[in-house]
Amino acid sequence: MAKKEINYKAQKKRTKLLVYAILTIMSVVWLFPIVWIVLNSFREEGGAFVPYIIPKHFTLSNYAKLITDASGNYPFVRWFVNTLIVSVCTCVLSTFITISMSYALSRLRFKLRRPFLKVALVLNMFPAFMSMIAIYYILKALNLAGSLLALILVYSAGAALTFYVAKGFFDTIPMALDESAMIDGANKWQIFTKITLPLSKPIIVYTALTAFMGPWMDFIFAKIIMGDDVKNYTVAIGLYSMMTQTTANSLFMTFTAGCVLIAIPITLLFIYMQKYYVEGVTSGAVK
């Protein structure tokens, strides 16, 4: 009996060691590209390709180049501010829109609700490239092409069809809560603001976080809207524009420095909010 116990313990220990080993290896694989970006951003010599990992000379000049914008063609600070403005506005607007839509579709009953759910499901499945040109001309007709407002508008308009996760969350809040409030004489507006919303922190944070990150990552559509208005670029278009054929080699390290700078705020936000993020995605169906 005792022997068995020891065996069992030893086996458990072996399993644990194995798990640690796998996790360590995986972590290395996952962190390697990130570490490599960071190292590159401090590299002084060479171009885009060097056959070694650790830079031979460390420097801060890549960051300095980015922030001071000596050439006048890559106003990174301005891009950063643009992106911040766009993402904050988009975040507020689209959270509002997504929550409104998902609440209406989850809690309220009206004609055409079910057909609408199906239509909305498939509407977004059309590849977006050609509609981008159409959207560009619609914005141009509204005299908005090339402005930050256009980006905010389009990103937020897209939020109307991304309600599925949030709807799943609202579906789990018991209807009994609404009914008892209604008996107390509350109207639907009051139920929405006083009862449902306070219970929905995780999903609001999740929606907001997703919306906030969008503008930092979109480089194709934003470029079509912005055209040659370099001053109105977001960081994603800006950084991507550094990687053209003729400039990729000479600007590679500056590019990585830019990558580090935009990854920092998003990473911090993400780590800080990950609890809500998980709750937002999972609670919809777990409970």
Binding site: N73, I133, Y136, Y137, K140, A145, G146, I224, G227, D228, V230, T244, Q245
Partner: peptide, 21 residues
Amino acid sequence: VKAGSSADALKDVSKDPEKAA
């Protein structure tokens, strides 16, 4: 003077000739 990309002239100009350079 605006920064452009000569290799993409066809693409960039045809997107919207009126707003192009």
